[in-house]
């Protein structure tokens, strides 16, 4: 278990510590940033306040996929803190996040950044924002289509679906025969009996895609 100083210690009382700095011109640009649509939406999905992050950057320092990102993970948090919705939703960083939880584990203020990334990604889908990381979003869609149909992931169907949707027809084409011979890629799906419940869950939770805005 992680030691946390969140349990009341750092909650400063009025009059404790230095006075708040005077407002500058830049504060006026985003007067109610913490109450912006995006910050509220993220808070509702993650049960945590985005302002827990004080931008120390430890998450980005330890992120295994930081090298492949245009915006560092803590910068995306900053976008949301400032209410910069478009910048946050158009960033490819949430899509590149591998969900390894290194950031969430190391955060000195217990901000669950991986959960935050899940929320930003989900909001961008709800808002119909198309990510530039098309392969990653197509993979998730193809995976969930198999689960919706069969109740389980059907790897052969997933690979075929993904390839048709991304037109990456030749990638890994040399792995497939070996996998089938080893019995690792079953030709037929394993189906769940109670597919009605699965269908119901998908029916009630699938995002109705809206136009951007």
């Amino acid at each position: 278990m992680k030691n946390s100083f969140r349990n009341g210690f750092h909650v400063l009382q009025p009059g404790f510590g230095p006075a708040a700095p005077a407002k500058t011109a830049s504060d006026e640009v985003y007067p109610n940033a913490a109450h912006s649509y995006i910050a509220k939406e993220v808070a509702a999905k993650t049960f945590q306040d985005v302002n827990l992050c004080y931008q120390c950057g430890k998450c980005s320092a330890g992120c295994p996929v930081r090298d492949y990102m245009a915006d560092s993970p803590n910068k995306v948090v900053r976008f949301v803190q400032l209410g910069l919705e478009q910048a946050a939703l158009n960033s490819t960083t949430p899509w590149l996040c591998a969900g390894c939880l290194t950031c969430s584990t190391r955060c000195p203020n217990d901000f669950n950044l991986a959960k935050f990334m899940d929320a930003v990604r989900e909001i961008s889908i709800e808002k119909g924002v198309k990510t530039k990381e098309k392969e990653i979003s197509s993979f998730h869609e193809a995976f969930l289509r198999q689960v919706r149909l069969f109740g389980r992931s059907y790897e052969a169907g997933l690979v075929a679906d993904y390839k048709l949707n991304t037109l990456r027809l030749l990638q890994d084409v040399d792995s497939a025969p070996g996998m089938i011979l080893k019995g690792k890629l079953s030709v037929l799906p394993h189906k769940v009996k109670d597919r009605k419940t699965i269908k119901n869950i998908f029916g009630k939770t699938t995002h109705k895609k809206k136009r951007n805005g």
Binding site: E122, H140, L144, K193, D194, I198, I201, T206
Partner: peptide
Amino acid sequence: DDWSCCGATSAHATNHRLANALAMR
């Protein structure tokens, strides 16, 4: 008996209600 997919990365990365329901089933 009759277990189903937990939703894996693809569910929690794109739809947290779906992810919760699939795992909880």
